[in-house]
Computed example of a mutant assay.
Amino acid sequence: MKARQRQLRPLEGLWLAAAVVLLVASVGAVDKDKSYTIVGGGGTALRDFVSDAVGNATQDANYKGLYLPFYTVGTGAGQQGFLNNTYQYAIGDFPLSKKDYDSAQRPILQIPISFGPVVIIANLTPEFHASNTLQLSAPVTAAIFQGNITTWDDPAILAINPNLTKLQPPIPAGTKINVVGRSDSNAAAYAFSQWLAQASNGTWVLGVNKTLPTSPGVKVVTGGSNVTNYLLKTPFSIGYTDAYAGKKAKLPDAALQNEAGKFVRYSKANWTFPGVNITIPAPTADWSKFNLTNLPGDKTYPVVTTSILLTNNDLTGRETRGAAQKAVFGYLLGPAVQGAARSYEQFPLNNQFLNASLSAVNSIQVIESKDFFQADQLPKLGAPYNVNFQYN
């Protein structure tokens, strides 16, 4: 993608990242002397990915006069902004809750656009990280975050990390594990606690929550950047975050034990989910129970978020902006954006999800009689494709 075109500015006391771009090509239904604003908001883990994606749309030869701010207020705040019509769309790392879905008061669509790993990061010794990867199972991780395992030489940790016993210099006996968690609603906590609830064989007793409950000894901070800052500054610490934040902080992620019993780092995983039968809900359905946690497969990474676009199904009342929104959503599913996802530690949709998402975007009702995506324009499986954004 092109260099970022975004600005940071405060809004209601929060620092929000915005990709504010003027799209500069031809769209027949847009007045050449007018600009149309399409405002989105959502998850902080998606800030650069989505901001760069809408910025890159300026290079498309079929746009003109569209102004696309995307505010990273967090997934929950983005969803609420969409529901109360502050934003025309939202993108976040978990679906609407059942309560919010039932209270929407209008037909909406929930459309996947990418997959994102949640990582566990530990700050051990440079000697360990130089040649080893920490391995963690769900039962051991649950015990650490609940305060049942408190030192790095606990037998349960050493049983799956024998190299910890061979370090020179060794980690001192009884070295405390400094655990950090987040108090604010976040997608990482949601996926992380889902994994522990599903895979820890009953060890995890604190439930599934977007604000992860923790034991009294855990350091609690607000915001993902404070998690990585704590991990960087605190020896022998451990915490969870989205993979992009971990990569930017240059912190090594642990290999997590998946459903097949294999320890897998997200960068080595197979994100096409081969051979896995995944039921994708209808875009107008309740998605609150949907997750991709702990799926089978030797190379499957077990802690996964799904980035989900929220949009109104009926955009006929928005004149040319409705059709423009449909084009932008199609662009997010196109090869330029999907092909760049890995640069942001997101992973492109596999064929099953991609076709379901394209069909959902195709179903959006706009004032123009001709749909953007005709049947012969849908992608052929495994092949590059182009979508015609022109409308008249």
Rank of each mutant, 00 (worst) to 15 (best):
Q80T: 14
S363A: 13
Y67N: 13
W195C: 01
I120C: 05
F389H: 09
K299V: 01
K380W: 01
A260R: 03
A61Y: 13
D93Q: 09
D371I: 03
A245D: 14
T284F: 10
P384D: 10
R265F: 00
W271Q: 08
T165W: 08
V118L: 05
F145S: 00
G42K: 07
Q377I: 00
A104C: 01
V328L: 15
G334F: 02
L167H: 06
V387Q: 10
G261E: 04
G65Y: 06
D242N: 15
G181Q: 09
A336L: 08
W271C: 08
R106A: 07
K248E: 15
N312L: 07
K210N: 14
P281W: 03
T234D: 09
G297Q: 04
F49W: 15
V220G: 01
A130W: 02
A341F: 04
Q80I: 14
A159K: 14
W15G: 11
Q79T: 06
G239P: 00
Y89F: 15
E319T: 13
A138S: 10
D286E: 05
G382I: 12
G40H: 05
T293E: 01
P274Q: 09
L206W: 08
D48A: 06
V21T: 11
A17H: 10
V39T: 14
L11Y: 09
S359W: 02
Y344W: 04
A57P: 04
A255K: 14
Y87G: 02
D93M: 14
N201P: 00
L158Q: 14
N392I: 04
P379N: 04
S225T: 11
D376F: 02
R342D: 11
L66W: 15
P274F: 13
Y36D: 03
A122H: 03
I160Y: 00
V205T: 15
P274G: 06
S267D: 14
A243G: 01
Y266W: 14
Y101H: 13
V39Q: 12
G55T: 08
V27R: 15
L124N: 02
Q5V: 09
A285N: 13
G78R: 12
D48H: 06
A29Q: 10
V304W: 05
I111E: 00
L167E: 13
G65M: 09
L109I: 07
Q390T: 15
